[in-house]
Amino acid sequence: MSTVLRVSNLTKTFRSGSRELTVLDDVTFDVPDGSTCAIVGPSGSGKTTLLGLCAGLDAPTSGTVELCGTDLTPLDEDQRAAVRNQYVGFVFQTFRLLPTLTAVENVMVPAELQGRRGARERAADLLDRVGLGERLDHYPAQLSGGERQRVAMARAFINEPRILFADEPTGNLDVETAETIEDLLFSLNANAGTTLVLVTHNLELAERTGRVLRLRQGRVELDEMRSEGVKV
């Protein structure tokens, strides 16, 4: 199995006044293609920072991130944006839909940025698969939290990404909706063969992945491979 994400000696420090704060300290790990991985840890342990660096949303202080064979370290923001658009999908805790666009238009955005043809048909198909086939032309404000997250998932998959990063994807949802979303997330992931890297506080959700990385104070405290793999 090839490696889709390779993180080597990753360190990120922030300056706060005269103080230097190390949020990630010499983190190294690989994520194989098609696998699922959860990053867990207490608040302030560096989970979100690690996810952001892995997805090329920010540049590390030192170390390297190689995503889908591309070393992100020397790239500028626009070049990293192109890599994200080509290989990466995102699901956020707070959905992050554009309020001015309808559900189907929101899903189309990544495909449109790539200039792909047939974006609308594909977006409609994905929305149908997440159960929103009747709500294509609804604006985010007209959708419930669960529905918005399903739109966000459809958007994440429209470019058939090789890797999907999810940041607390069920953190803003009630238990019942959260379970539906989780099932959907893993089923889409399994069907498309996409690698899934998610950040969560929810240990039950983490247990559904094939691997758990536990962070504490910016370091990998535990890297647990789970033999049973993904529970769908």
């Binding site: 997805a55 949303l57 923001e77 626009d78 944006a81 192109a82 994200r84 658009n85 080509q86 990466v88 995102f90 992050r96 554009l98 955005v109 990544p110 940025l113 790539q114 958007r155």
Partner: peptide, 15 residues
């Protein structure tokens, strides 16, 4: 915030 989201989804600064 919208600009940041679009960039996250792969839009360049010029877009």
């Amino acid at each position: 915030q919208e600009s940041v989201l679009l960039k996250t989804l792969g839009a360049s600064r010029s877009t």
